[in-house]
Design a protein around this nucleic acid. Structure first.
Lengths: 332, 332
DNA sequence: CTGAAAGCGCTTACAG
DNA sequence: CTGAAAGCGCTTACAG
């Protein structure tokens, strides 16, 4: 009932209980051997005093802060804001929810491509989303011996031992393209972007391979940096394609807009699919969706990272995508 | 170039540079008075050794961890997953991006309504989103003297001094309802929920007040816990209303689905608005959107909290909403 | 079952 | 301009 201004520490609890701080620490953390009565008394006194351990001290002493960093790139570009940012957000959310199961919290740490992590905070390990070429964060973790897991294949050489969590876009792309073909596509196209990240590169490769296997001409159109996605979509439609898969929702929506402008009916005259999330309750717009599951990705990253932290051999994880064909989903 | 297994500490840098750890600390942190040549040498040696300060130790010593906690409730319910969770995610993202400007990172800390914060991590202050009645987190922060800022009016008494960041739904609701009226609404309705959080309560109150001021009959339908939003939407349409505002996107999409099922044209025969985010590129669905700006909310929370931490008197902040009328937005 | 003491790796008065 | 030393608040061998 002391109304002191200072925060109550383990010392205060020990004094109030007439015990040593050792015993208080044991009692509160359930370690060591403490008489049951003593333990209860300590817990009661701690509660009455409103004692909360100083987490920084605990972290320093134990070497564990219980924080998992998640490195989130931030770039100022249209499609990025509209599609990648929501993806990252969901990964963070999935990671946060999973982390609590393992007694951790997740800290979103913005990164700049040039300088790497923008702020230094205590953390036990790091989740790196979509590593870039010559990734400064990966290099930093390696040097400092910080456990790391990546979402998306690392582009740099020499990181073969870093555990990877990935969406199974190989299966996903096959499903999508098979769907387009079954729907009658004879001139399939891919609306993709200019950035050379692993996701874009892999998507293009999978598209090419599928076209080759299916003996179909494949048209690839990359939206250039600074180019309007709608303009790119229009120029693609001008080339007489009858089915387009878009790398992300920004591009997919641009296709829908371009088709709408010219009165081309989707999906009857033009089949459109895109990589993206879709609210299962939203009314249909004629497009099919290949949904990544970023929440599951975030959760998987945490599981792998925690395994790593606990000295277990981490394994790579593949998270399935979900294909949602065009048409209104049954509401309810 | 020592290939030791142990992490390099300030001690190692001092030894390598032939200086005391004091001087190294001064030199690296830009404090104290250090000869320019010495400073450069220290920085070079530190870089060569790959020295990174132990953040837990720094946090213990300075009392600042540079982490801002953000308490994110997690409940397992349909509309919650689909609309509140995305909102929270965006708040976290906005907070993370803003925090870096102030040298902080943001840690998403899941909370349960019963036990409060699910995990203890070092943090300098806390952002509490949508405080509930008898909020255990608010109480805990008060007791422990942790600086806190809330998004959404606190429901509990005695927290009048806590800084609040809020969306200006008063202006937003007026805009939306005026729009519905201008579009010809004579029997407006509100599709709302059963939970008694400040946002729901305020929305209902604003709706009632507006109806009274405009001398219109106002119908309120609350989706009950466990009830299908589409079923609720259908029962509302049965009551002959000609315009409905929905509390969130789940309910708004349910209205669109219900209207679609009965062939009621939106917005010609039924006007629909909803609180929610809308991709500006997505094709129109006939509904109007009142967009909260969760990213701005998150950023504002961080600014207010940082002001608080730095001893400045924090002030409440109101973030404007954006009304997006129905219809295709110009693409581009 | 309990306590006195060391020490995690820093920052920062303080003394030169 | 530089260094020796205290101490942030815990956890944890170690000795009783």
């Amino acid at each position: 009932m002391a109304t002191s201004r200072k925060r109550v520490g383990i010392r205060d609890v020990a004094a109030a209980a007439g015990l040593s701080i050792t015993t208080v620490s044991w009692a509160l953390n359930g370690k060591g051997e403490v008489a049951p009565g003593t333990r209860e008394r300590v817990q009661r006194v701690a509660r009455e005093l409103g004692y909360q351990p100083n987490e920084a001290a605990r972290a320093l002493r134990t070497g564990r802060s219980r924080i998992l960093g998640i490195a989130v790139a931030h770039r100022e570009s249209g499609p990025w804001e509209q599609t990648y940012l929501p993806y990252y957000r969901s990964v963070v959310a999935g990671a946060a929810i999973e982390a609590v199961e393992h007694g951790h919290a997740v800290a979103a740490i913005p990164v700049s491509q040039a300088r790497g992590l923008e702020v230094q905070v205590p953390c036990d390990g790091l989740i790196v989303i979509d590593p870039v070429r010559d990734d400064p964060i990966l290099a930093g973790c390696r040097r400092r011996g910080i456990p790391v897991v990546v979402d998306g294949r690392p582009l740099d050489e020499g990181f073969g031992d870093v555990p990877v969590v990935e969406s199974d876009i190989a299966t996903g792309m096959r499903t999508v393209l098979d769907h387009l073909r079954a729907a009658g596509a004879e001139r399939p196209a891919l609306l993709t972007g200019a950035e050379r990240d692993a996701y874009t590169i892999d998507t293009e490769r999978l598209f090419h391979n599928w076209c080759r296997r299916n003996d179909l001409p494949g048209t690839v159109r990359r939206v250039r940096a600074g180019e309007s996605p709608v303009a790119a979509a229009e120029s693609l439609l001008d080339r007489g394609v009858d089915a387009v898969h878009a790398l992300n929702e920004t591009y997919g929506n641009a296709l829908l807009a371009a088709a709408g402008d010219r009165g081309v009916e989707v999906p009857d005259r033009l089949r459109i699919t895109m990589m993206g999330e879709r609210d299962p309750l939203a009314p249909g717009n004629g497009a099919g969706y290949l949904s990544l599951d970023p929440v599951a990705i975030g959760a998987a990253c945490v599981r792998v990272l925690v395994a790593h932290l606990n000295g277990r051999r981490p394994e790579n994880v593949t998270v399935p995508c979900r294909f949602i064909p065009p048409g209104r989903t049954p509401a309810g």
